Every structure is written in structure tokens, then in C-alpha cells.
Amino acid sequence: MNIKKHIPNLITLINLFCGCIAIVFISEAKYEMAFYMVCLGIFFDFFDGFFARLFKVSSPLGLQLDSLADMVTSGVAPGYVMYSMFANSGHQLGTSPLIPFLGFIITIGSCYRLANFNIDTRQTDSFIGLPTPANALFIISLQLVLDMYSESSLFILELFTNQWVLLVITLFSAYILNAEIPLFSLKFKKFNFKDNMIQIVFLILSLGLIVLFQFGAVPLIIIFYVLLSVVNNMFLKK
């Protein structure tokens, strides 16, 4: 029995398990713990592919498992967080009990992105549209920002408890997941500064933002990632 071929799939299933635990934490309003579990799931999501390439055991089964695990960790979890944010916000969109379910538009957008990623041969060395893990971190971090700054900042409180704002964020999230916007990969192809300059600059600035703003840095990092990719695309065209 070749144990090596099962290691990447086992790692993928651990990612799925982390996503399930994150959902439980979200249901208990323990958003910080949910964020950590999603981060852990994303960590395992990175290494299942790494070990599949290392052991040369990539398979169609592994590809499907990876997408199904990501659907929970990076699709259902952020949708549930946005559902909770809608449910705990004001009633600017009305008093219908169905309004919070708009948060799951993020889950729908994530599902479409993951299915499309599996058949899109263009996304081998880079991404087209925001990857679901990055989107998940962005959405969940918004709740953490609200928890951290709601008492000290009236602007943050009003911003992230306004259902119109949450709706715009939700629709933009579903859009950017599937937008035809090339985004650079964080994988290092060669070990030199010239070929990895954009990745190195991004990682250094991201680290600085985390030191300064902690959880508040996460949405800024994701926005910066998209903007830096757009700027990079403009230079590549020139």
C-alpha cells in the first residue's frame, strides 16, 4: 500500500475539519477562534498541494476533495459570518427575517469560483479573480474589526452595522471572486529578488500592516493585494 498517495488527501480533509470547527465557533459568536480555524484550514490547503507535487501523487480525486474542503472553509464560513453581521445590524433594508440570508451570496460566489477554477487552465501560475481563501479572510476579519473598534470608533460601528454597506460588500465579494482580473501568485518560482519582487514587496508591507493594526490589517492587505495586482498588470501590458 502506497501511504504517500494518501497524505495530501488527508491534509485536505484536515482543512475541511478546520472549516467545520470554524462554523461551530461562528454559531457561538466566537469570531476570533473562527478566524484562527479558517487560517489553519488555509494553511493545510496550501500544503496538500505542496505534498501532492512533492510525492508526485496528484490525482482527480485530490482536486475534487480540495475544492469541496475549500467550499466549507472558504465558502460557507465567510457566508455565515456575513449572515451574522446582517442579523446583528440595523434594519436599513427592512425587517424581513430573510435579509440576513443575503450574506450567503458570498457562499454562492465562492462555489462558482471553485468550480470554475477546476476547469480553467489559465490559473496554473497565477489567479484570475480573488482566491476563496483570501476572500474568506477578508470577510471574517470585518467582524473582528467591528469587535475591536466598535467601542472606540463610531465610524466603524456605523459602517459595519449598516445593511446597505454590508450588501455592497457582499455583492462586491461575489463579483471579485469571479472577476476577469489577473492576480499574482505568492509562490516563488525562482530564488532571486528580481523574479519575485512583487511578492517580496507585498509580504514585507503586509507584515508591517499586521504589526501596526493586527486584525485590522487583514482587509487592508487583501485590498492592497488586488490593487497591487492591477498596477502590476498595467506595467506588464506596457
Rank of each mutant, 00 (worst) to 15 (best):
F191W: 09
N232V: 00
I223F: 14
M82H: 08
P8F: 01
L166G: 03
I21L: 14
G103D: 09
I99N: 04
L236A: 14
I198Y: 10
P60K: 04
G19T: 04
A136T: 01
A87T: 00
Q123F: 12
M33H: 12
L40D: 08
L167R: 10
G41P: 14
L166V: 03
G216K: 11
G75I: 03
F43K: 00
I198E: 09
N116V: 02
M71S: 15
Y149V: 05
I26H: 03
L146S: 10
Q143E: 15
N116I: 08
L61W: 11
L65I: 08
Q163E: 15
I198H: 11
F215W: 14
G79T: 05
F104W: 06
H6S: 13
D195A: 12
F86H: 04
F191D: 04
V211T: 10
K238L: 12
F17P: 06
S153R: 12
A136V: 00
L54F: 13
R53E: 09
F213N: 01
T107L: 11
L167G: 11
I23V: 14
F193P: 08
I140D: 03
G41R: 04
L177T: 06
Y83D: 01
Q143N: 14
K189L: 09
S110L: 06
G79F: 13
L93P: 09
L157M: 12
D70W: 00
I108Y: 02
S89D: 11
F191E: 06
L154I: 15
T132I: 04
F193Q: 01
I222N: 05
K238R: 15
F235W: 07
F191I: 07
N2M: 08
I222Q: 06
G90P: 03
I11Q: 06
Y36C: 09
I169Q: 05
F47Y: 10
G109K: 02
C18P: 03
P219N: 04
I221M: 12
V165L: 11
F184K: 00
T161S: 14
C20E: 01
S126G: 00
P131R: 00
D147N: 15
G103P: 10
S27M: 12
D48W: 00
N15V: 10
L102Y: 12
F213P: 00
Q92V: 01
A69D: 02
Y80S: 13
L209I: 07
M1D: 13
G19A: 05
T132P: 10
S59L: 02
T132N: 02
M234A: 13
G90R: 09
S229C: 04
M148C: 10
P60S: 05
G129K: 09
F160A: 05
P97W: 00
M71H: 07
V231E: 03
V38M: 01
Q92W: 07
F184L: 07
I7Q: 11
